[in-house]
């Protein structure tokens, strides 16, 4: 089903660009994660098995429902859902996003991988998502946005894993999913603790440690 796969990949890139230009991002990141969870269903070398279905469903529940809830809860009492003064403005972020996209297409062509890829778009889409996640971690002030950036990065790696590699053993995929879950959980608790101690969650004001 290459048409559907390409559709998802294009949607992935578009949502990624939207995320770069948005000040409220939790739902967009959840949408991106949920979209991605459909990928394993469409790319199955051995037909639809219960393992693939379970993995897809589990990942969709986590990324589409559990993560956004956790993060909304973590920041409920702080008035920080919006990123108001990012280091890099939203429109410049979009421009940087476009440039990253172009670079991802170029890089995707440079990296020769053995075997047939599912679609020509896979590698560029994965690289773009990874790079935009990294950009969010670096270029935004709020600790919350850094968590979201980490999730976007993880989504990109997930795309790469599903579409390019294919045959990773089930247990490992499960382990990775669990690690990401615990990571978001831990980061959520950390956000709450920081919020209590600092009465803000601006990562840029946490700058007492130097040298």
């Amino acid at each position: 089903m290459p048409v559907l796969v390409n559709g998802i990949l294009i949607a992935l890139i578009l949502v990624g660009l939207l995320i770069l230009g948005a000040s409220r991002m939790i739902r967009l990141v959840a949408l991106q994660g949920a979209l991605l969870s459909l990928m394993p269903l469409l790319i199955t070398p051995h037909g639809l098995t219960w393992r693939v279905a379970a993995l897809s469903l589990g990942s969709m529940i986590l990324k589409g429902i559990v993560f956004p809830r956790l993060l909304f809860r973590a920041v409920k009492h702080a008035q920080v859902r919006r990123e108001l003064q990012p280091y890099v403005g939203y429109s410049s972020s979009m421009v940087i996003g476009m440039a990253t996209l172009a670079a991802s297409f170029w890089l995707g062509g440079q990296l020769p991988l053995p075997g047939e890829a599912v679609s020509d778009l896979v590698l560029p889409a994965a690289l773009f998502t990874i790079l935009s996640g990294l950009f969010l971690v670096v270029a935004r002030r709020k600790a919350l946005t850094q968590v979201l950036g980490f999730l976007v990065l993880e989504n990109g790696i997930f795309t790469f894993g599903v579409a390019v590699v294919g045959g990773i053993p089930f247990l490992i995929e499960l382990g990775v999913l669990m690690d990401v879950f615990v990571a978001v959980f831990v980061m959520g608790i950390a956000l709450q603790q920081i919020n209590q101690a600092f009465e803000h969650i601006d990562a840029d004001q946490m700058n007492s440690l130097k040298g």
Binding site: A190, A197, F198, M206, S208, L209
Partner: peptide, 8 residues
């Protein structure tokens, strides 16, 4: 506060 900063 400093240890939370380092942890983050």
């Amino acid at each position: 506060p400093a240890s939370l900063e380092a942890m983050w």
